[in-house]
Design a protein around this nucleic acid. Structure first.
Lengths: 294, 294
DNA sequence: AGCGACTATCAATATAATTTATATCATCGT
DNA sequence: ACGATGATATAAATTATATTGATAGTCGCT
């Protein structure tokens, strides 16, 4: 059996049209016909019903079932390709969401540099949700991810290294600036400056607004903490961030939340279950652990 | 890329000898050489180091990494083959450990027969541990499994339908027969008649003996409840079983355990995550649910 | 009836895998 | 040092397999 046939099959499941699949792979239409025939013979079953009456291609239960396996086979191959590329180049790709890159990574980088392995690390930036997929697809080998629940995915191994409460940040000129702690419900009338939706902050924030039954007035969304903090300082709105962000400014005040059952910002070191760590990668992970879990 | 090449590669990882792999597949040795070359070109890397000095084949890190993926790919294909076979034959294979077959399945079978789908079900007997692997490898499509902990495996979905405490059964002539409840520690000096090690009962039993710091005197092990019960009735020893076993005899007395934190016999309906249920299979599972979860 | 959108069939051709035969390389025994 | 042995590699010939190009079949639509 040839991987090509699986590729063709996979596309046919999606496109449901032999000719279009052929075009997509730059081969002629009979090629696809033959490929599917080969698979049908190999598995001794019918995978598609060519319904000429309604002019549509119907996937049989066998076809549906095979499609599931073919998917994992193809993605497994894709991951293998990427992993072996990284191995050949002697580098590893470390996924880092901006917040973690800003507030945890400097410490790590210093140690990695001391051990002369920083040069072997390529970082990949992106929101935690996006990075989780990149990790699954083999684009990244290791990632530091934020989440509001402990990460539990089939294909990933996560090791929690920190858990931070979320805080509210307001301008020093804001009425709440004299407080140390607030209930989330006290923020019903506030304007918010927040991260955009690729950040876990939003999951947590949404949980809290839903629990407190209000629709927040979000006046701006950004992807950069400093932009958000500057807006907060200008009293454009208040924000919702972890305590780990920059606190070295006197024009912004941090307030703790008094609510019970607050969501937490959980940071984890995550790898694929299928990933075999090289000695270099093991050292990197050990540095991550040693530096982050303290 | 050809699946054959992956097969050859997989064997070579295990056997570390080109000629032997060739022999195993009934092909000539250059075939293997070429197959590995193709893979090395495809992945643009070296998979094996041919160490002629020490006359051994060394797997490179890339080789190790690829091996992991090749394994899952091949097993995925194997599962696909079996599943499609079952689909074509319009049957499903239901894994049943003997205890569950005896004490839960009769009810289920009656209902399945009423719905005329019993004929489509092939049962596969075996211990819960063995059946778990059979399910993973595609030999079974659905299984009812016993366990002492909730089942949580990457590739399997489990749905608990019952949880039973374990009980002690003694002969009516036994000194403890007048009691209703005992502590497990009171059984230190007893002789035991038990199931053999392919049953989860053992896991639970061992937990209790360890917790109570004693080495049980096991005088006999069997695979059949009735054999065990007959021996207990004859006062050969006492036994440790779930309460669901046959209680319609007056020569044996059931005692509950008074211990805190007792292990439980958890019964679950288990399927593969990758398995697509046909309408027939869905009906079967619905019958299982309806009959068992009540 | 004829056209358009699909899929199947088949002989010819192109591509790829396997075999057969032989070469290379390192080791071991004498 | 020499030849035998066990292992993998190489190259040409052979065999097997995939793809193409041309064409035919089927159905709906107008």
């Amino acid at each position: 059996m040839n991987i090509n046939d699986l590729d063709y099959f996979n596309q046919l499941i999606k496109q449901k049209n032999f000719s279009k699949v052929a075009a997509a792979f730059n081969v002629t239409q009979p090629t696809i016909t033959m490929a599917i025939k080969r698979l049908e013979r190999e598995f001794n079953t019918t995978l598609f019903l060519r319904d000429r009456v309604h002019n549509e291609l119907i996937v049989t239960p066998s076809g549906e079932q095979l499609a599931v396996h073919v998917q994992t086979i193809l993605s497994e191959l894709q991951v293998a390709h990427q992993e072996l590329n990284h191995l050949a180049d002697q580098h590893m790709v470390l996924g880092l969401p901006p917040i973690i890159e800003n507030y945890y990574f400097p410490k790590v980088a210093a140690e990695l540099q001391r051990q002369e392995i920083l040069e072997n690390i390529q970082t990949l930036a992106g929101g935690s949700v996006w990075l989780r997929n990149a990790l699954r697809d083999g684009q990244a080998d290791v990632a530091l991810l934020g989440s509001t629940e402990p990460l539990a995915y089939r294909t990933l191994v996560a090791e929690e290294f920190d858990r931070q409460p979320f805080n509210i940040f307001v301008s020093a000129r804001h009425p709440l600036a004299t407080r140390k702690r607030v209930y989330f419900s006290e923020l019903k009338r506030e304007k918010f400056v927040l991260f955009n939706s690729s950040f876990v902050h939003n999951t947590a924030f949404n949980k809290l607004t839903r629990r407190n039954h209000f629709r927040p007035d979000v006046v701006f969304r950004a992807t950069d903490t400093h932009v958000i903090m500057n807006l907060v300082a200008e009293n454009v709105g208040v924000t919702f961030l972890t305590g780990i962000v920059d606190q070295h400014r006197d024009d912004v005040v941090r307030l703790e939340l008094l609510d019970d059952e607050q969501p937490a910002f959980i940071s984890s070191i995550v790898t694929r279950t299928s990933h075999v760590l090289t000695p270099m990668q093991q050292r990197v992970i050990q540095v991550l652990r040693a530096t982050l879990e303290e």
